[in-house]
Amino acid sequence: MLKPRKSVVSLSLFVMIFVGTTTFWNPLTAAETNDGNWRIVNYWSEWCAPCRVEIPIFNELSVRLAKSNVMIVGVNFDEDPMELTLEIAGKMGIEFTVLSQEEVDLLALKLPDVLPTTYLLSPSNKVVAKLIGQQSEQDILDELTLQGLTPFTD
């Protein structure tokens, strides 16, 4: 099993820009420096049963969709410290990237009212879909198709 990976290159870059140039994060900055990837941002919690059901689906999609420039990242809804978040993610079998709270803050997403909630972000970090509740693999692929993407399928 892969270990959960912390940090997203582009987001780390945003952090550097954020720290180095200004005290306010400008969403335009994110768009300008984006890596061209679409992002699926999945909010999960260890105590959320439907979240746990989704994890294997996102694990598999994170590998398959990487070829289509779609990146899957996870967010611990409980905002635990990163060390604990990674420990929990490991126990849950999460194999895709897990964001730190600082990285989550930079995305400036509305905190979800329901778990699980999954956002689809365009390469300019615009929220193009908000998927509430447990999603199937087909739900995700359908949403990508709806956005004009032709996700890789093998």
Binding site: P50, V114, L115, P116, I132, Q134
Partner: peptide, 30 residues
């Protein structure tokens, strides 16, 4: 929703009078 709102209701009572407040977000409108 096929998910967890993590937002339970609350009830208070006095004699016959009861009040219940709760959260919902149908159509993603809190």
């Amino acid at each position: 929703i096929s998910g967890c709102p993590v937002n339970g209701p609350s009830v208070a009572a006095m004699n016959k009078r009861v009040a219940v407040a709760w959260f919902s977000a149908r159509d993603d409108v809190p």
